[in-house]
Simulated assay, not measured.
Amino acid sequence: MTSEARYDIVAIGNAIVDVIAQADDAFLEEEQLVKGSMTLIDADRAKQLYRDMGAAREISGGSAANTLAGASTLGRQCALIAQVADDQLGEVFTHDIRATGIDFDVPTISDDPPTARCLILVTPDAQRTMNTFLGASQFLAPASVDADLIASGAILYLEGYLWDAEEPKAAMALAIDIAQENNRKVAFTLSDGFCVERHRDDFIGLIQGGKIDILFANEDEIKSLCETEDFDAAVAQTAKQVETLVVTRSEKGAIAVHKGKSCAVDAEPVEKVVDTTGAGDLFAAGFLSGYIEDRSPEDCLTMGAVAAAEVISHYGARPEADLQKLLAQRLG
């Protein structure tokens, strides 16, 4: 057993560069896109959609990477395991993640397939519709999982988005085993309703098998997981099977059930919601930062809510304001 943790959070996730553009509902309809959804696309579709979407900005993303970026801003020591290609976007992602103070040392692969990218269309109501080409991320091999690195992290954080391909799925399963052998906490985010629909049996197997200590979900995901429209029933059912359940509910705030005791917080006020991309990722960053500091579940939820409110007030899924200052003002 490794007694001292070098890192607060070690995450495994997609290495993605977000390409963000504004769009109206008519464009979504023309492209047969479901507003607010995340769809996996192939290389040809990625090229076509990139060609037809409006002027865009490129910002490094990836769900777990976004969470680490927020956690690092809050003073946490973090490391990422993810796969990029030896290409321009791979260089962009690597530079950006290291610039935030996160350790990232997985060797690149050749430039075919290229580094993953997510084409994000933001409508005037701030809803984001994501179209993801996973590219090199799908080829994160179990050999990339450094056992010593996993053992040196207090929390192993995993994203459901990466569960589609066999190699990263095997890598995450290996990492869970290593973390548990070293008495580390395992946190998992369901990521999106489509992930739950595709992998419900696997996710339930992880939960019921005692592989997950901290589970993150939003309201739709937790109901889909339990195949019920009864939110309270879904929460009650799932909370019995994990140490900590965290469920975000957009403008209705968030709840946590920790060792059978539940609590809730309201959403933080936002002057104007600009882009909801990364809201759940930053919520996890705030919550886990509080968890590492051994704060109360209420404080952890508040920290998550503050971080989420900051990221939805601007374009992109990485924080721009000083989160530590915002939390100091909020929590004292």
Rank of each mutant, 00 (worst) to 15 (best):
N131P: 03
R117K: 15
E159G: 14
G160S: 12
D220N: 13
A175L: 12
G205L: 11
Q180D: 02
L215G: 00
G135Q: 03
A170R: 04
V186N: 00
Y157R: 06
G153M: 02
A173F: 07
Q138V: 14
S137M: 02
A217R: 03
N183F: 12
S144L: 15
E159W: 04
L156E: 01
A170H: 01
A175W: 06
Q127T: 05
F139Q: 15
L156R: 05
I178K: 06
L158P: 10
G153P: 05
V196N: 06
Q138Y: 10
I204T: 13
D146Y: 04
A141G: 09
L156H: 09
N218I: 04
P124C: 13
T129I: 11
G193C: 14
D202S: 12
T115V: 15
R184A: 03
A173W: 00
R200N: 15
N218V: 10
A154Y: 09
V122P: 15
D177K: 13
L149V: 09
H199C: 10
S144F: 07
A165D: 06
A173D: 09
V145R: 02
P124F: 08
A116T: 11
A151M: 01
T132G: 09
A154Q: 14
A187K: 02
L121D: 01
D177M: 03
N218P: 13
A165Q: 07
D125W: 12
I207L: 07
Y157L: 15
L121S: 04
A154S: 10
E181F: 02
D146E: 13
V122Y: 10
D164R: 05
F139S: 12
I212Y: 00
D177H: 09
I120M: 14
A170L: 05
A165Y: 04
Q127N: 15
G209F: 07
A217T: 05
R128K: 10
D177V: 08
V196F: 09
A171M: 09
D201A: 14
G205T: 14
D201S: 11
K211W: 00
A173C: 04
R198H: 13
L174V: 01
F216H: 04
I176M: 08
I207N: 01
L215M: 06
Q180F: 06
E159D: 09
N183T: 13
L149R: 03
A187G: 03
D164N: 12
P168Y: 03
D146W: 08
I178L: 07
R117G: 00
T132L: 06
G205K: 10
I178Y: 01
A175E: 05
L206Y: 11
D213T: 08
D177S: 10
